[in-house]
């Protein structure tokens, strides 16, 4: 554990609390992609299956349970409690374009041909693109509530902080996990456009609006 990793995880936790706060205080999940949230549940469940087989630390276990539980809770909020505020007609990204390639990539790039390793690898690839339906929706509507942009910024910061974490680990442990690093770089890259608008508009007090 190093500070980059720790603050990355804190940022990830913060993003989830911001999202739950947004949905429950506005009593609406408008602007949030159900597909992206469903992908996160898939990511967490497939990756954290090792909860039952390998123990890392209390921190690790508690965080894994939290991520699975909170992502399921968000789906519940969107699908049940605030269902009328969820508009599927603008959440149109085709999931098969994401899931299919991730299955193929996991079959090619993995650390062992057994269910746990294949699912782990699949979850890493899937996480790297899970935000795309959300970004696609943002692109389509051309604007976002400020609280939603804070959610995305916290989520992007979590990914960005994992990069110095890997650099630090390379020098302190002399090992690089090529699957995590490659997928992580791609994932962080997807946020670059968003971050540009976030820093130049939202943090200057303006509304998040994309040029027409």
């Amino acid at each position: 554990m190093n500070i980059f990793r720790f603050f990355g995880d804190l940022s990830h936790l913060a993003s989830i609390f911001i999202l739950i706060h947004k949905i429950t205080t506005t009593r609406s999940c408008r602007g949030i992609s159900f597909k992206t949230q469903a992908l996160y549940v898939t990511v967490f469940v497939t990756r954290y299956l090792d909860l039952f087989t390998s123990y890392v630390s209390l921190y690790n276990t508690v965080m894994k349970i939290f991520f699975i539980a909170s992502s399921c809770y968000i789906l519940y909020l969107m699908r049940v409690r605030y269902r009328p505020t969820n508009d599927p007609s603008i959440d149109t990204f085709r999931l098969e374009y994401l899931v299919g390639p991730c299955v193929v990539l996991a079959l090619i790039f993995n650390y062992g041909y057994n269910p746990t390793e294949l699912l782990w690898s699949f979850s890493i690839f899937l996480e790297s693109v899970a935000i795309l339906p959300q970004l696609f929706m943002l692109q389509r509507t051309g604007e976002a509530e400020t609280i939603t942009t804070h959610y995305l910024a916290a989520l992007g910061a979590y990914r960005a902080l994992y990069i110095p974490n890997w650099i630090y680990r390379y020098f302190s442990e002399g090992y690089v996990d090529p699957i995590s690093v490659t997928a992580g770089l791609v994932q962080t890259g997807l946020y670059l456009d968003f971050f540009y608008v976030y820093f130049t508009k939202v943090l200057q007090g303006q509304k998040f609006e994309l040029p027409a």
Partner: peptide
């Protein structure tokens, strides 16, 4: 090594 170092990450 004994596996891949990022398995302890979240």
């Amino acid at each position: 090594g004994s596996g891949h170092s990022s398995k302890d990450e979240l």
